[in-house]
Every structure is written in C-alpha cells, then in structure tokens.
Design a protein around this nucleic acid. Structure first.
Length: 361
DNA sequence: GAGGCGTGGAA
DNA sequence: TTTCCAAGCCT
C-alpha cells in the first residue's frame, strides 16, 4: 500500500466532499438538517435500504414515493394486506424483499412497539435485514459507528488499497480496511459519502479519478489499476428455458390469474397459469391448460432474462363463458385487474396478448 | 461457499 | 445482441 501523509484525514476529506456533492434523495435529510444533527426517519431509511438492494437509485425513487404516500409509518405498512404490498412492489424485482418487508414491519410492531431498534444485533434479527442493512440503519438513522460494506465500499476499498484478491474471498480484508476508516463523528453521513463516491466517481467502469477527493492517497490510482478492480470470480453462462402461459378472459372481462407459491421465483406474486419452465429447445413445454377452452396460439413470444437464466415464453389466449370452472387460479374482475400489479415477465405476456388480439392473433 | 433470486440501463 | 451490473439476503 502506498503511504499517505495523513491517513487520519481521509474521512474528513470525504465528508467535506459530501457536504458539497451529496445527492438529494427523498429518504435523506437536507443540508440544514444535517448541520443541525437532525437524523432521518428510521422507517424511511430502512425502506429505502431494502429497495436499494441490487437496485439503482433512479429505479427506487418512484417506488419509495408511492410506498411512503400509501403507508407513512411502519405501523401502517404492518397493517397492510399482503396482496396490496406485493402489487405495489411489482416491477421492482427480487420479490423476497417484499415478502420480508411485510414480515419485518410486523415484527417491528410486535417486538419493538413500532419503533425500529438502533442496535446492530436487534436489526440483524429482523427478516430481510443482513449485515449491510443493519449497519446502514444503525449508522444513518441512529448515528452509531457501524461500518457498511456494500458493492460501492468494496470497490472503493479495493482501489484505495490496490487489493487484487478476487471477490468474494476479499470481503474480510475489505471490511477490515473499511472499519479502519469509519469515523466516530457523523458515521451515517460518512457511510453515505463512501457509497455516493462509489456511485458517482469511483464507478465500475471509467472511474473519474481526476476529480476524486481521494485521488492522492489512492494506491490503484498510482498503479493505474483502478479500472481493473475489484477482481471478481467469473460467473456461469445463463441457460435458456422455455415455457407456456395461458391467458383466459371471461365474458364479463375477468382474467384468470393465480398467486404463485411463497417460495421460489416470483414467489407470492400474481401470474398467469402455465407450464413449468424447462431447459429444452425442442418440444416447448405446453403444460396443461388451467381451464377447458378453445385455446389460440398468440403470434410472437415473450423473451425475458432473470438472474440465472433466459426465458422464452409462448402465449395462448382463450375466451371462456361465465360457467367456466378453472382447475387452477381464480378470476380477477376487470375493475380489480391492474397490469402494474404483475411482475414484469407476466406483464410482458399480457402486453403481447393484447397486441396479438389487436392484430387478430 | 455457492447458487437462487428481477429488472432496466449502459456500453 | 450480449454482457455487465446496482446501496444484498437467504439457504
């Protein structure tokens, strides 16, 4: 590691940068509040941190605004219906987060009287809160000296110290380096400052080292290795899976939908009944139609990529009478059906079916 | 430790 | 078009 003249100055240098460059976000307090030591609402900090897991700030903004408008407090959220919350989360992805969000809200009401605990261990015991989120809530909402280690901090530390050990093996060392720097003063602002630095300056590709407040002490900057760090173990290629979904509309306009099982892919979300999704290229799986009908094959197919596989989905459409008795799912009335309640892959299937009907299949 | 778990934007 | 990846957690 390159020696720095005043390593103890690094947190102060970054906080000075943050005071000027902090991005405005609905879950943050403004500069005046920060100056006065006013802390943000723990509920809003927690909600934003859950939404921000593996998700960009741009994407989270609108979801966060809708959630806090509909459920202003953790008690309001705890009292919500499961389907309401899953529908509001639809499109944001990683739906286990939404299931755990509700579990967590209810646990905060039951275990802690509706107030988020400040200490790391109590937070860690709540559903959906892991080491990162526990540290983030402790430091940002309660001003406790905890160290956050997210993808940004990992990248910044790997570069600052020119660490070439690949992730995830490098995590313990990166955490140790991050801990050394975490200040007792304004730890929450410092945590957000490192993450802002990683998101705007110390970016994965083409880092803007020339305008980085830490460019002088940065070892990777000196070695010219910044864009190569952190190193990561290569990931496996994604297989292609195939399947079929069935979209049935009743005479009164109601759609045949099902709530998916709690566990697994798209767990707890609304979706169209259909086949399993299999790794076969010939003989596309058709499964068994959920209701007897004159099924029509819609032109085209839905293509969608999940975390670990590509999906190609065939669509079949039918009109059914009021006497239809489906073997799976239940009819959702026209007035209650909102395409925005569907996870994206299911919304794509709906969009394709509408286009196919408009074009005469 | 490694794999499951979404989505949309950038390069 | 394909790949990479964004403020991770759970099993």
């Amino acid at each position: 590691m390159r020696e720095t003249a005043f390593p103890g100055d690094l947190p102060r240098i970054l906080l000075d940068w943050y005071d000027i460059h902090a991005r405005e976000m609905p879950w943050r307090t403004g500069p005046a509040d920060r100056e006065a030591g006013v802390l943000p609402d723990p509920y809003r900090v927690w909600l934003s941190e859950i939404m921000l897991q593996q998700t960009t700030v741009v994407t989270v903004r609108d979801y966060f605004a809708r959630f806090v408008a509909r459920w202003p407090t953790v008690a309001d959220l705890a009292a919500a219906e499961d389907a309401e919350v899953m529908g509001e989360w639809a499109g944001l992805g990683y739906y286990a987060r939404a299931r755990n969000l509700l579990k967590c809200a209810r646990a905060v009401v039951e275990r802690h009287g509706g107030n988020f605990p400040a200490d790391h261990d109590s937070l860690l015991a709540l559903p959906g809160i892991g080491p990162y989120t526990a540290a983030a809530v402790s430091s940002i909402a309660f001003d406790l000296q905890r160290t956050v280690l997210d993808g940004n901090v990992e990248r910044v530390m790997a570069r600052l110290h020119d660490i070439h050990t690949p992730l995830p093996a490098a995590k313990p060392e990166l955490m140790a380096r991050a801990k050394e720097l975490t200040p007792a003063h304004r730890p929450g602002d410092y945590a957000q400052a490192v993450m802002d630095l990683g998101a705007t300056i110390c970016t994965p590709r083409s880092p803007a080292c020339g305008i980085c407040p830490w460019r002088d002490p940065c070892a990777a900057r000196a070695e010219g290795t910044a864009p190569l760090l952190p190193k990561k173990t290569p990931k496996k290629p994604k297989p292609v899976r195939h399947g079929t979904v069935y979209l049935a509309q009743r005479t009164d306009g109601a759609w045949l939908l099902e709530t998916r099982p709690e566990k697994g892919l798209l767990g707890g979300m609304l979706g169209w009944p259909g086949s399993d999704w299999l790794d076969v290229s010939e003989d596309r799986p058709a499964g068994i139609p959920p209701v007897t009908a004159d099924w029509q094959v819609a032109a085209g197919e839905v293509r969608h990529t999940f975390t670990h596989f590509h999906l190609v989905l065939a669509i079949r459409i039918a009109r059914v009478g009021m006497d239809a008795e489906p073997a799976r799912g239940q009819f959702v009335s026209r007035s209650e059906f909102r395409p925005s309640d569907l996870p994206t892959v299911m919304r794509k299937a709906f969009d394709l079916s509408q286009a196919a009907l408009t074009a005469g299949l």
